Simulated assay, not measured.
Amino acid sequence: MSENDWFVMRPQKAQAYGRPEGDGFLVRKDSTAMRDGSASVKRDREERDRLVRQGILVPDSDPDLYRFSRDHLFPSASMAGGVVKDGNCSGPQTWRCSKDGKTLKELP
């Protein structure tokens, strides 16, 4: 699969690549996630903390970021985005196609 077949999300310093897969949303290995994102309520913080405990999210060389140590399948694009952003997220409106910039929501 080429770079153009992936969706990208860039909240603050983080940069993550993902795509719909089966019944979920796959985030690619080496994508980064914010350690401490928005100050608001974080519905996906528990999932993010679980991924840290499991070694799926590991400290990045940038102290503001975590890095995905392997591909990870989330149940939804919104949960994937919430973990990457460290804040609440609408995945269909946030993940953008690498080649044309369209959101998941804009695609057929």
Score class of each variant (00 low, 15 high):
27 V>S: 02
96 R>T: 11
36 D>C: 04
13 K>Q: 11
56 I>F: 04
84 V>F: 08
6 W>S: 03
66 Y>S: 02
90 S>Y: 08
56 I>A: 02
58 V>S: 04
75 P>K: 13
55 G>L: 07
5 D>S: 12
18 G>T: 05
86 D>F: 05
92 P>D: 04
73 L>E: 07
102 K>E: 12
70 R>G: 02
85 K>C: 07
50 R>W: 05
80 A>H: 09
3 E>M: 12
54 Q>C: 01
52 V>R: 05
24 G>Y: 04
35 R>C: 02
16 A>E: 08
14 A>L: 10
5 D>Q: 13
101 G>Y: 04
54 Q>K: 13
24 G>H: 05
51 L>I: 03
84 V>Y: 05
48 R>W: 00
1 M>D: 04
5 D>F: 09
74 F>T: 03
28 R>T: 01
75 P>I: 08
23 D>W: 02
99 K>S: 15
71 D>W: 07
107 L>F: 13
7 F>N: 14
52 V>G: 11
8 V>L: 11
77 A>S: 15
42 K>M: 10
87 G>H: 12
67 R>N: 02
100 D>P: 02
42 K>W: 08
45 R>G: 04
70 R>A: 13
39 A>D: 11
74 F>S: 02
53 R>V: 07
81 G>F: 10
82 G>K: 09
71 D>V: 06
82 G>I: 06
4 N>E: 14
70 R>P: 00
79 M>N: 05
22 G>W: 07
108 P>G: 14
51 L>P: 14
89 C>P: 02
75 P>L: 09
68 F>D: 01
25 F>L: 02
23 D>Y: 03
10 R>Q: 13
47 E>R: 15
42 K>S: 12
74 F>D: 06
81 G>L: 10
108 P>L: 12
79 M>Q: 15
98 S>G: 00
98 S>L: 03
72 H>Y: 15
28 R>S: 03
1 M>R: 03
91 G>Y: 10
20 P>I: 01
79 M>R: 15
7 F>L: 08
50 R>N: 13
59 P>H: 06
14 A>F: 09
89 C>Q: 14
72 H>R: 01
50 R>E: 14
49 D>M: 13
55 G>A: 07
22 G>A: 07
78 S>M: 09
6 W>V: 01
54 Q>F: 06
101 G>S: 06
96 R>P: 02
95 W>N: 07
74 F>E: 08
45 R>F: 10
88 N>I: 06
23 D>N: 14
53 R>H: 09
73 L>G: 04
43 R>T: 11
29 K>R: 15
79 M>A: 07
52 V>F: 09
91 G>S: 09
30 D>P: 00
97 C>I: 00
95 W>K: 09
98 S>N: 15
107 L>E: 11
67 R>A: 07
34 M>K: 07
8 V>T: 14
39 A>K: 10
90 S>T: 11
61 S>W: 03
44 D>L: 00
35 R>D: 00
40 S>V: 01
34 M>P: 00
60 D>E: 07
9 M>G: 01
65 L>E: 05
17 Y>N: 09
78 S>F: 10
61 S>G: 09
86 D>G: 06
91 G>T: 09
